[in-house]
Design a protein around this nucleic acid. Structure first.
Lengths: 153, 153
DNA sequence: ACTTCTTACGCAATGCGTAAAGATA
DNA sequence: TATCTTTACGCATTGCGTAAGAAGT
């Protein structure tokens, strides 16, 4: 399992197409196909259902997506934050949530976290919690702490 | 930045030696040196101070370590959990902590998490919290939820 | 026919190993 | 001299691109 494979996987999942994902990743489409197949082979089951007109996630793919996003976001954080001041409680806590549990814990955990570490930044990755996170960002759900959603490059 | 580079980095950090890290990773020692140097080059600053008798983490290295562990643990979770039943609240929440904030939030977050998701498993990665986690595992600190520390292979 | 994914194949990049060289005690 | 890391260099793996094939609308 390699990082670029996770990148390609997320691109396919988000675009719903191998072709468009290849464009986004700036590689040839067969090369992307090849890497996705290797990933599926390593994990033991297909990640996408290849339908005639579009590509949709399988159950395994749906489970992988938030975790892949979390890992890619953490890598982003590393590149951004290593040279900068990540001291003095200004750290970045990167948390990946699983769909089932997110709605229950997320608001409370964020609130709790913001109370203990007001200067720290929280990074949340989970597709199904996107709406929730957006509400927080928009200020409809005040949690008292800076929250941002990492872009997946 | 590649996965195997993070693996090598963690091995060097934990063994305090390029030679022993290479043995653990089952590769030649110069090859490991090469990958560590590439990683340092990409991040823009050295990760280790090469002392005569041992190697120690630089500030940058200390910041990278918990994040690298977190990523590697997430990859482990993916491999373990994809085929299995990660539904019904039996999921694995993998959380990476930064040294400064861990002692404050960890116990409370774990307790809160266990209340909301009694069937879920919590995975914590941070070297400086190792003692804390061990106390929890040993039962001295009851949090009411299964906790395990992922091995970094 | 047109769009999209897969297969086939060759090249180029790179991770790894062996051997030699610094460096420090 | 012994231990440990770095440098040098060649090989083998593999990711990527181009071209052709397959399948569906």
């Amino acid at each position: 399992m390699e990082i670029h494979q996770l990148t390609y996987f997320v691109a396919v999942a988000e675009t719903g197409s191998f072709t468009r994902a290849a464009e986004r990743c700036n590689i040839a489409q067969p090369s992307l196909s090849q890497q996705i197949m290797k990933l599926e082979q390593e994990l033991g089951e297909p990640l996408f259902d290849r339908l005639p007109r579009r590509v949709v996630l399988t159950d395994a793919g749906r489970m992988l997506l938030p975790r892949a996003n979390s890992i890619l976001a953490e890598l982003q954080d590393i590149k951004h934050g290593l040279n900068e001041d990540v001291e003095n409680g200004r750290g970045v806590l990167s948390v990946g949530f699983i769909p089932t549990i997110a709605p229950f814990v997320l608001p409370r955990v964020i609130k709790r976290f913001s109370q203990d570490c007001p200067l720290a930044t929280l990074s949340v990755q989970e597709d199904l919690t996107e709406v929730l996170v957006r509400e927080i960002i928009d200020g409809k759900l005040d949690v008292g702490s800076p929250v941002y959603r990492s872009t997946t490059n």
